[in-house]
C-alpha cells in the first residue's frame, strides 16, 4: 500500500481546514501518516484520526511557531529521507508554500503545485493542474522512486470525517534544533478580526474591486452583504491599495471561496481573482466595461456603474423583504 504523508498545519490552535481536506483525499490513496509540528500539536491527534490518519508523527517545539519555514523543512526533510513516503501532500497556505519551497530544494525532489485531482496507480502519480486561468487541465507526473511533493489549494477536495474514526498510532519525535534553523524570527502576530460570517463559510459573497473607485465605497458592499447575510471580499488590487485588510482577499494569493452566490462589483475578472471564486454556483457581475473578462463566465452580467447599482439593489432587497 502506498505511503501517503500529509503535513497537518496547526494554525491558531487548530488544524488548518486544508489539512483535513488533504487527509480525506489521502485515505483514498493509501496508508496515511500525518505530521503535526508545533506547540499543542499533540492535542489534535484524535482529530487527525477522524479524518483518516493511521499514524501521526508529533513534535512539540516552540521553534515551529517562532521561526518561519526552516524548522519544519528540516524536520520534514529528515523524516522523508528516513522513511521515503510515496507522496507528501501540503496545503497551499502561506506557511505551507514556504515550507514546501524549502523542502523541495532540500530533498532535490519533484514538486507539483495547485493539484486539482490526484491519482496514484501503484507508485505512478498523475496530478491535474489548472493552467492558463483554469482554461486547460494539464496532467503532470513526477517519475522516479523518491518522495513526490504535491501542493493543493484549499477547497480542492471536500473534507469528510470517517464513519468509524481511526485511533492513530502516535509517535513523538525526538529532535533538537540548533540555531541554524532559527533565523526568520516571528516577533509579533497581529490578527485582524473581521465581522459577520467568514468568507470561507458564507453562502453569499459580495466582492469589490477597482471599479468602486475609493475605499469609502466599500460600505456599499457591506450594506448589501448585510441584507443577504453574506461576507465581503475584495480583489488583490484594492487590498494592495490598502482599502481593506488582506483577510478580505479572494484569489490566487488570497482565499478560495465556493459560495452559492458570488456578486462581483467593479471587478474585471483577472486570472489572479477568478481562480479564487470560479467555484461559486452562481456568479453575478456588475462592471462598467462591457468587455470585462468577468462577463464571459458570469451567470448574470450587468454593464453599469456599481456605485449606482449596489445601493439601489440593497434598497430593492430591503423592500422585498418587507
Amino acid at each position: 500500500m502506498a505511503k501517503i504523508w500529509v503535513f497537518a498545519e496547526i494554525a491558531e490552535g487548530k488544524v488548518h481546514r486544508v489539512s483535513l481536506e488533504l487527509l480525506t483525499k489521502a485515505r483514498e490513496l493509501g496508508e496515511v501518516t500525518a505530521v503535526a509540528l508545533g506547540p499543542g500539536a499533540s492535542n489534535h491527534t484524535a482529530m487527525l484520526g477522524e479524518y483518516g490518519a493511521n499514524r501521526v508523527l508529533v513534535h512539540e517545539d516552540s521553534a515551529y511557531a517562532e521561526y518561519l519555514a526552516e524548522p519544519a523543512a528540516q524536520t520534514l526533510g529528515e523524516l522523508v529521507t528516513k522513511e521515503n513516503p510515496d507522496l507528501l501532500l501540503i496545503g497551499t497556505t502561506y506557511n505551507g508554500r514556504d515550507i514546501a519551497a524549502r523542502l523541495n530544494a532540500r530533498l532535490n525532489c519533484g514538486v507539483i503545485t495547485d493539484g486539482a485531482s490526484i491519482t496514484l496507480d501503484g507508485t505512478s502519480l498523475k496530478v491535474s493542474v489548472p493552467w492558463y486561468s483554469a482554461t486547460t487541465l494539464v496532467d503532470v507526473t513526477i517519475e522516479g522512486g523518491t518522495t513526490k511533493l504535491v501542493l493543493v489549494r484549499p477547497k480542492s477536495f471536500t473534507s469528510e470525517k470517517l464513519v468509524t474514526p481511526i485511533t492513530p498510532q502516535v509517535e513523538s519525535l525526538n529532535i533538537t534544533f540548533d540555531n541554524s534553523v532559527k533565523r526568520a524570527h516571528i516577533v509579533e502576530s497581529v490578527v485582524q478580526k473581521s465581522e459577520g460570517p467568514t468568507l470561507e463559510e458564507s453562502t453569499v459573497v459580495v466582492s469589490g474591486g477597482r471599479g468602486l473607485k475609493q475605499a469609502e465605497n466599500f460600505s456599499l458592499l457591506t450594506a448589501l452583504a448585510e441584507q443577504l447575510n453574506g461576507a465581503v471580499g475584495a480583489s488583490r488590487a484594492v487590498v494592495d491599495a490598502g482599502w481593506v485588510p488582506y483577510s478580505y482577499q479572494v484569489g490566487q494569493t488570497g482565499k478560495t471561496v465556493k459560495p452559492n452566490v458570488y456578486i462581483a462589483a467593479g471587478i474585471s475578472g483577472a486570472i489572479q481573482h477568478t481562480v479564487g471564486m470560479k467555484g461559486a454556483k452562481y456568479i453575478i457581475a456588475i462592471n462598467s466595461d462591457a468587455d470585462a473578462p468577468i462577463f464571459k463566465f458570469a451567470d448574470l452580467g450587468i454593464v453599469g456603474d456599481a456605485l449606482k447599482v449596489l445601493p439601489a439593489l440593497t434598497e430593492e432587497i430591503k423592500k422585498r423583504k418587507g
Binding site: 514538486v111 486547460t136 487541465l137 503532470v140 507526473t141 462591457a290 448574470l300
Partner: peptide
C-alpha cells in the same frame, strides 16, 4: 523532475445573460 503527460480543456463556465 516533473513531466507533462497530456492535457484537456477544462470545463468552462458559460456566459449567462448580460
Amino acid at each position: 523532475k516533473e513531466r507533462v503527460l497530456g492535457w484537456q480543456p477544462a470545463e468552462q463556465r458559460k456566459a449567462g445573460q448580460v
